[in-house]
Amino acid sequence: MKKVEIFDPAMCCSTGVCGPGVDPELTRVASAVYSLEQKKFDITRFNLANEPGAFVDNEVVNKVLLEKGPDALPLILVNNEIVKVGAYPTNEELAEWLDVKAAELQEKPRVRVSLKFEK
Results as ranks from 00 to 15, higher is better:
residue 51 E to G: 08
residue 77 L to I: 05
residue 5 E to F: 02
residue 2 K to D: 10
residue 101 K to H: 15
residue 85 V to K: 06
residue 31 S to N: 10
residue 48 L to C: 05
residue 65 L to Q: 05
residue 24 P to K: 02
residue 47 N to E: 07
residue 118 E to Q: 12
residue 75 L to E: 06
residue 16 G to E: 06
residue 61 V to K: 01
residue 52 P to Q: 04
residue 114 S to C: 10
residue 9 P to I: 03
residue 18 C to H: 10
residue 43 I to M: 01
residue 104 E to W: 12
residue 104 E to C: 07
residue 54 A to D: 03
residue 7 F to T: 07
residue 111 V to R: 14
residue 55 F to I: 06
residue 3 K to F: 01
residue 1 M to T: 09
residue 45 R to N: 02
residue 91 N to D: 14
residue 99 D to V: 13
residue 80 N to G: 01
residue 116 K to A: 13
residue 114 S to V: 10
residue 13 C to T: 10
residue 102 A to G: 08
residue 11 M to W: 05
residue 36 L to M: 15
residue 5 E to G: 02
residue 69 G to V: 00
residue 33 V to S: 04
residue 51 E to Q: 13
residue 106 Q to P: 02
residue 13 C to S: 15
residue 85 V to L: 07
residue 112 R to E: 13
residue 95 A to M: 09
residue 105 L to S: 02
residue 66 L to P: 03
residue 45 R to C: 03
residue 78 V to H: 05
residue 11 M to P: 00
residue 18 C to S: 11
residue 38 Q to S: 10
residue 94 L to V: 03
residue 89 P to G: 06
residue 109 P to L: 14
residue 119 K to M: 13
residue 71 D to R: 11
residue 106 Q to N: 15
residue 41 F to I: 06
residue 15 T to Q: 01
residue 33 V to Q: 04
residue 109 P to N: 14
residue 107 E to F: 07
residue 119 K to L: 15
residue 108 K to R: 10
residue 42 D to Q: 12
residue 47 N to P: 09
residue 99 D to T: 13
residue 82 I to V: 15
residue 20 P to W: 02
residue 41 F to A: 01
residue 103 A to V: 13
residue 57 D to S: 12
residue 39 K to H: 11
residue 6 I to F: 00
residue 59 E to S: 12
residue 14 S to N: 04
residue 80 N to T: 05
residue 18 C to L: 13
residue 55 F to V: 01
residue 119 K to S: 15
residue 117 F to I: 14
residue 38 Q to V: 08
residue 72 A to I: 02
residue 33 V to T: 00
residue 37 E to R: 15
residue 13 C to Q: 10
residue 31 S to C: 12
residue 88 Y to V: 12
residue 42 D to S: 14
residue 6 I to H: 01
residue 5 E to R: 03
residue 82 I to F: 08
residue 8 D to N: 14
residue 64 V to R: 04
residue 32 A to T: 05
residue 28 R to S: 12
residue 70 P to C: 01
residue 3 K to T: 13
residue 2 K to G: 03
residue 86 G to A: 04
residue 17 V to E: 04
residue 5 E to Q: 12
residue 102 A to V: 09
residue 116 K to M: 10
residue 16 G to T: 06
residue 23 D to V: 03
residue 58 N to P: 07
residue 87 A to H: 06
residue 88 Y to W: 09
residue 79 N to S: 12
residue 109 P to M: 14
residue 46 F to C: 04
residue 102 A to T: 03
residue 110 R to F: 11
residue 89 P to K: 01
residue 61 V to A: 08
residue 17 V to A: 11
residue 86 G to H: 05
residue 10 A to K: 08
residue 49 A to L: 12
residue 14 S to R: 09
residue 18 C to P: 09
